[in-house]
């Protein structure tokens, strides 16, 4: 694994250009957190609640659909506000690509990105192999347990809601879970949490399966096989066919729902192979 990636990209596009989407993502992740925090801290209420359920400007309800599904599985029939909120959130993530949540909103992503960055710097090679399908099993488990137990068992430890809630309402010993994830990613499984285990990632994978916004290797013929995109990508397998599968008839569009639309591949590519596209116009381009 390469300790430093994107050297060519930095040389051609400058440091800012080679980190554009990464910086935007951090602004988005921390900005959303900040919008939740300025309420309790300074009394400026843009967003109330937390990622599990919130209210935007005292009017728009938003509810984590995965959370609500667990609640329904546990036997509760929610009030209309929560249902409406879950619909709004689901439609939004469907439009922007489901795992947009993972890379642009989820606070845990900052931790796992840090772990991966450190992994590269420290040249940690050992990685236990775990199936990337595991997360779907965890997703299934987190929806079956409430049916059996009548309570949202996954939410006792769910690091995503725990982290976000903790920042706003007090973390307590919650950092133990977060350190656990960090170490798991750093020492045990590369991209372990977000790429293999997290059921919320799996859930948004399903939500965004047919999303209109995708990243495309639209200039794949220019690829010089530096493999920098594979190094930074949390789901490197999604790049393989769009980049190298032309002779097998694969479209340059990254169609796998595992892709988080983080656009980091666009950042690190010195050849400008990638860009963000929508599904429909790319067909028009192919036809030309």
């Amino acid at each position: 694994m390469k300790a430093s990636v994107g050297a060519e990209a930095i040389a051609t596009k400058g440091w800012l250009g080679a980190h554009k989407y990464l910086l935007l993502r951090r602004v988005s992740q921390l900005g959303i957190l900040a919008l939740f925090l300025i309420g309790p801290l300074f009394g400026v209420w843009v967003l109330k609640g937390n990622l599990s359920s919130s209210v935007l400007l005292d009017t728009v309800p938003m509810t984590d659909p995965f959370m609500l599904m667990q609640s329904i599985a546990a036997g509760h029939i929610p009030e209309i506000t929560a249902v409406l909120g879950a619909l709004i959130v689901a439609v939004f993530y469907f439009m922007v690509g489901g795992r947009f949540f993972c890379s642009w909103v989820c606070p845990v992503n900052v931790i796992t990105d840090l772990a991966h960055w450190l992994r590269r710097k420290l040249k940690v090679r050992a990685s236990t192999k775990l199936s990337r399908k595991t997360r779907f099993w965890v997703l299934a488990m987190s929806l079956v347990l409430p049916v059996v137990l009548g309570t949202m068992a996954w939410e006792l430890i769910n690091p995503v809601s725990l982290f976000h809630r903790g920042v706003i309402f007090g973390m307590g010993l919650g950092w133990i879970v977060l350190v656990g994830i960090f170490l798991f990613d750093l020492l045990l499984v590369e991209h372990g949490w977000c790429g293999h285990v997290c059921p919320l990632g799996a859930f948004y994978n399903l939500v965004g399966r047919y999303s209109p916004i995708k990243v495309s290797a639209y200039q794949r013929e220019k690829c010089d096989k530096c493999m920098d995109c594979f190094t930074v990508c949390t789901e490197p397998h999604v790049l393989k066919m769009p980049l190298f599968g032309e002779n097998k008839g694969y479209s340059p569009m990254i169609e796998s729902a595992d892709c988080t639309n983080c656009a980091r591949c666009i950042d690190v590519c010195s050849q400008d192979v990638f860009k963000i596209t929508t599904r429909l116009p790319i067909k028009a381009e192919v036809k030309q």
Partner: peptide, 22 residues
């Protein structure tokens, strides 16, 4: 089964009575 742990009630309470369990 019902509570989604959002803390909206906590933020709505004018007396800081409510807390979210850690």
């Amino acid at each position: 089964a019902a509570c989604v742990r959002c803390g909206l009630c906590v933020e709505a309470c004018p007396y800081d009575t409510l807390k979210l369990g850690k």
